[in-house]
């Protein structure tokens, strides 16, 4: 359900850009999805064709770039890889890590004509 409503947002954003940037057909959509975001890339791929049916992106190619999770350790003050929201600091194993990036989910770019 969640992924479907996100894909409906994708379609709406495409339709808005079609007006402002003057295109009528989208042949490729690139999404950037953070490792710590609440969406599952496979679920997006699964729903993409269905949601784009009848839109200007019908039959378009979907590319998903996954962005890594990165955090800041409150203990040792270093930057650390964050594969999950609860992963400890890779340097000092402290569980107190603040998320810096990796929660984003956005449309990066399109190939249109």
């Amino acid at each position: 359900m969640h992924e479907l409503s996100l894909l409906e947002n994708v379609r709406e954003i495409l339709e808005q850009h079609a007006v402002s940037q003057q295109f009528s057909n989208v042949c490729q959509v690139t999404l950037a999805v953070g490792q710590l975001s609440c969406v599952e890339p496979d679920a997006l791929r699964f729903g993409f064709d269905v949601v784009m049916q009848g839109s200007l992106a019908e039959g378009a190619e979907l590319i998903i770039t996954e962005l890594p999770g990165v955090g800041h350790c409150n203990q040792c003050q270093q930057q650390t890889d964050l594969p999950t929201l609860y992963a400890p600091c890779q340097h000092c194993a402290s569980p107190l890590v603040t998320v810096l990036s990796g929660t984003e989910m956005k449309i990066k770019d399109l190939i249109v004509n």
């Binding site: 954003i13 850009h17 984003e104 449309i107 770019d109 399109l110 190939i111 004509n113």
Partner: peptide, 21 residues
């Protein structure tokens, strides 16, 4: 490797999927 038709171009969007919400 994908190839696009004549008039194809790249449009930068950089917009959050939840931007409307």
């Amino acid at each position: 490797i994908g190839h696009a038709p004549d008039n194809a171009r790249l449009v930068q969007v950089e917009q959050d999927l939840l931007s409307k919400n």
